[in-house]
């Protein structure tokens, strides 16, 4: 696969006259051997480094859990601080016997449903409005003070308002999650649509793109990396919105479990609820990273990719 005929024509020609036609698969020259050895050595070094990183991580977790367990057993009051074994037993209990509010899976499904709906609706609204305002000077001038004011409202308080408006069901939690997600996504989409390279837009217009085509094939893709960056944080916000909404008033959900645990001074229950929520957030993060990598395939690989968080 040597694409440029002009520059590599001769190289291709010589390469097709193998010097050792009998051993086409084995390394041919000392240089090749060196290369293969270097690649293998680099791979081994990378594997060793990864193993060390994981070993240290594991050790840190073990030290932390053991010291917590030991101190909760001998020195501090496990009633307030709980301890790893108690949390573990609580988790086992929830998954095998169910919770005070019913099956644990119902709680997880409820919270997940609220978070996902809030996330999707909030993200769509944020992207659409962000891009619209980012591209229209007039609209953004008109809306700027309202957006700023709305953004300044402590949004968690809205959860209480939504419970009054929409009742104890799903919709009040979805609304809370939606509001949290919307602002996170909106500002990034707005900025992304603003910072579109003028050259790209001009070039597209010269090449024949209409206004809508400029929007769909230049503005949206340019803003995509901004938007995707915000989506990572946004799913976390959606979960927070759902859990806080449930906490404020609900009949099912992880937030309700945490609220119930708090009501009965059950520290282990609070931790257990936290852990489940965290696992969900991590899974969502993993899915979003996959999506991002797919959509941003065109980007050059980040230097020092291992160091990425």
């Amino acid at each position: 696969m040597q694409p440029d005929a002009r520059d590599t024509g001769t190289a291709t020609a010589t390469a097709t006259q193998p010097t050792q036609p009998t051993q086409p698969t084995s390394p041919r020259t000392p240089a090749d051997l060196d290369n293969a050895a270097a690649i293998a050595a680099a791979a081994a070094a990378r594997r060793r480094r990864r193993a060390v990183v994981w070993a240290v991580r594991l050790a840190a977790v073990v030290v932390w859990l053991v010291s917590w367990e030991v101190s909760a057993t001998y020195w501090i009051d496990p009633f307030n601080y709980s301890k790893p074994t108690a949390i573990w037993h609580r988790l086992i209990d929830w998954f095998t016997k169910g919770t005070s509010a019913g099956s644990i899976w119902t709680q997880i499904a409820t919270t997940l449903q609220e978070a996902v709906f809030g996330f999707v609706l909030g993200a769509i609204l944020g992207v659409v409005l962000g891009i619209l305002l980012g591209r229209s000077r007039f609209l953004s001038d008109v809306c700027a003070p309202f957006i700023k004011a709305a953004n300044a409202v402590p949004r968690i308080v809205l959860a209480s308002l939504f419970v009054i408006w929409f009742g104890l069901g799903l919709s009040s939690k979805i609304a809370t999650a939606l509001v949290l997600v919307f602002f996170a996504v909106f500002f990034n989409a707005f900025q992304g649509a603003r910072e579109v390279d003028r050259n790209l837009v001009n070039n597209a217009r010269i090449l024949g793109a209409s206004r809508t085509q400029v929007l769909t094939s230049i503005v949206v893709p340019s803003a995509t990396s901004w938007i995707l960056a915000s989506l990572h944080a946004a799913f976390g916000f959606a979960l927070i919105g759902a859990v806080v909404g449930e906490y404020t008033g609900a009949d099912k959900g992880l937030g309700l479990l945490i609220a119930t645990a708090q009501g009965s001074f059950d520290a282990a229950g609070i931790y257990a609820g936290m852990i489940i929520t965290t696992v969900i957030a991590l899974l969502a993060e993993w899915l979003l990273t996959g999506l991002e990598n797919r959509l941003l395939r065109w980007r050059p690989p980040v230097a020092g990719g291992d160091a990425q968080l």
Partner: peptide, 9 residues
């Protein structure tokens, strides 16, 4: 254009 203007994606 004087500057690069091809679509990076």
């Amino acid at each position: 254009f004087q500057q690069d203007a091809i679509l990076p994606w």
